[in-house]
């Protein structure tokens, strides 16, 4: 390759580069982005543990009802308030309902609510947040004012007003809608902060100067480049969805009989804590395992997306990146402060 290079003396610049490419030092490792993330994710033990636990819980929620003799709706009047035993694996409650059946059903509810809420919230907040950031000028000012205004009143209170109307077996849908209606606002604000630096990226400006329409820029450039944040947010959102379900149902505002959920079981059990402690302890343990496994997955994803978060003492990062992280952390703190009421 090199000999040739010297022989035909007069090269164009592009030809020279093409030759350099061909004789280049290494084959570029062709690994897709998703593949890279997956590899980094599965390298972490804690994340794999989290994912395994979650998988077991999901399987339990799906197949649990088939392996249990009892249904969460029909009580066993011969066994009221019995401790866990061979017949009733998790015991029964004061009404004779089999706790295993209830917990499995509640776990399914929690997972469905958490996931649906997380996906809806992330989608809405991503679109609104980036659109506001991209709008600039008056559009941005008005959008931000509206977001701030909607955040003035803690969303916990507003959601409570809506979900109190939830009842019956369809109550959980109302709960998801209520949670989503006010849950996206804080995230939208965070994502807008993230998008602020993205909108200044040259590829976004380049697309604008090519005449690409705004909607397309938002969908093609801004949202995909928030991808890692959105994935992590979705996972953490699942946790907060589950937490909210528990809180509202415990307060008697979310899921009510005849339906059941982990929060509802807790509220029923809390009055009989001395006589039948298993009624509160078992759903509590399930909730903790569920939330911690999601947290482990979220942490694993964060480290997979951002290898620097683990590399001890990384050489000075881009300044902008740091700012982003700081703003994000501050925004997250704001969100957390907002949810302390729970």
């Amino acid at each position: 390759m090199e000999e040739q290079n010297n022989k035909d003396e007069q090269l164009t610049n592009a030809q020279l580069e093409l030759q350099a490419d061909a004789a280049g030092p290494g084959e570029v490792k062709r690994i897709s982005y998703a593949g890279l993330i997956a590899r980094r994710f599965f390298r972490q033990k804690s994340a794999v543990v989290g994912l395994t636990i979650l998988a077991i819980l999901v399987l339990l929620a799906i197949f649990g009802p088939f392996i249990c003799k009892y249904d969460y709706t029909d009580p066993d009047f011969t066994a009221i308030n019995v401790a866990p035993n061979a017949r009733h694996w998790f015991g029964t409650d004061g009404g004779g309902f089999d706790l295993f059946a209830c917990v499995v059903h509640g776990l399914g509810r929690s997972l469905v609510i958490g996931l649906t809420y997380a996906i809806l919230t992330t989608a809405i907040s991503a679109i609104v947040g980036t659109a506001i950031a991209y709008a600039r000028g008056w559009g941005e000012k008005i959008g931000m004012w509206l977001l701030d205004m909607l955040l003035v009143i803690p969303s916990f209170l507003l959601v409570a007003m809506i979900v109190r109307a939830a009842s019956g077996t369809q109550g959980w849908i109302m709960l998801i809608l209520g949670l989503t209606a006010f849950g996206w606002i804080g995230y939208a604000r965070t994502l807008r902060t993230m998008a602020l630096s993205l909108r200044e990226r040259d590829y976004v400006r380049a697309a604008k100067y090519m005449g690409v329409p705004s909607i397309k820029i938002i969908l093609r450039h801004l949202i995909p480049n928030l991808g890692s944040i959105l994935v992590i947010d979705t996972v953490l959102c699942v946790i907060s969805g589950i937490n909210s379900e528990t809180a509202y149902s415990f307060l008697g505002l979310g899921i009510k009989a005849p339906d059941t959920s982990l929060g509802y079981i807790l509220s029923q059990g809390s009055s009989a804590m001395l006589s039948a402690p298993w009624i509160v302890l078992i759903p509590s343990v399930v909730l903790i395992i569920l939330c911690v496994s999601m947290q482990l997955i979220g942490d694993g994803l964060r480290d997979a997306f951002d290898p620097y978060s683990r590399a001890a003492g990384e050489v000075a990062d881009e300044e902008s990146k740091k700012d982003e992280a700081k703003k994000a952390a501050a925004a997250a703190a704001g969100n957390a402060a907002g949810s302390h009421h729970e």
Binding site: T246, A247, F250, G263, L266, L287, C291, Q295
Partner: peptide, 14 residues
Amino acid sequence: SVFLVIPTVVLAIL
């Protein structure tokens, strides 16, 4: 981070 994700109800009840 464990305490961060445990629902308040669960924590308080425990």
